[in-house]
Amino acid sequence: MDLFSRSWTALRAAVADIPDEDFERPSGCAGWLVRDLVCHLVIGAQDVLITLVTPAETEPTVDAVGYWNLVEPPTGEDPLEALIPRLAAAYGEPRWLKFHFDDVGSAAGRAAELADPAVRVSTRDEVLTVGEYLSAYVLEWSLHHLDLIAYLPSAAEPPGETLAAARALLEKIAGTPLPASFPDKDALLIGTGRRTPTDEEKAALGDFAARLPLVLG
């Protein structure tokens, strides 16, 4: 839960520091501008709030690893993916999007800090403990932090400990460790298809390269 708070706090701070004009820059999510990604993060914060107040009585069906599924790369035909840019544009000025994100994001952060990690909650037709749910989101926030700053070289990067935790979870999901020679940031970017590996990196990946990208859903 501490890692969730660290990753979320760092991501919220990174959004707050983005100049208005940079909201029109591309993000690391293909086809999305920075403003689109921030709008997606608003929805993510809402999902956290909803899940934390959706208790479950049955036994857990998944943990942080099982929460994520490996899916086919997006085709751009998902209605929600198409909706996000329209929602982001509707804010008009970046300050309104920033305000909404800070408002909902702060609430999600407080709710996570107050939650009992042993309590069971329901989301996506699965049951898991709050601790496992928030652990799963360390990967989500870390990847989207990297997406946010992909074309903003002066922006602050995610904390090292949260990148390490996100990498460890991604490797558990894949069932295979990424090469130890890869720094955590590069392991996440290459592993999820956000960056194309160099020839040297492909050689280090070996047969595992054929399984990339690992797209989470």
Rank of each mutant, 00 (worst) to 15 (best):
G105R: 05
Y151P: 06
F208M: 13
E171N: 06
A155S: 15
R110P: 02
Q46H: 14
C29K: 04
A82R: 15
K172P: 09
I18R: 07
R86Y: 10
P158V: 11
Y91P: 11
G193E: 07
S142F: 09
T162A: 06
G66A: 11
D116T: 07
I190R: 00
A82H: 13
A10T: 13
L70V: 15
E113S: 13
A204I: 00
R95C: 02
F101Y: 15
P73D: 01
R195G: 07
V53L: 05
P179K: 02
G191H: 08
D186T: 06
L114M: 05
V121E: 10
L148I: 11
A203M: 03
A210H: 13
H100V: 01
L49W: 05
A107K: 00
D125M: 12
F182R: 02
L97Y: 02
E157N: 09
G92K: 09
L114D: 04
T61W: 15
S27F: 10
L134C: 13
L52V: 04
E157W: 11
E201M: 04
L33C: 03
K202G: 00
L41Y: 01
T9V: 12
L37R: 05
C39N: 08
R95H: 03
A203I: 07
A210V: 10
K202L: 00
P85V: 12
P177A: 03
V104I: 12
L37T: 09
P73W: 01
P26L: 03
T54V: 08
D20F: 04
E132P: 12
A203N: 03
A10G: 12
A112S: 05
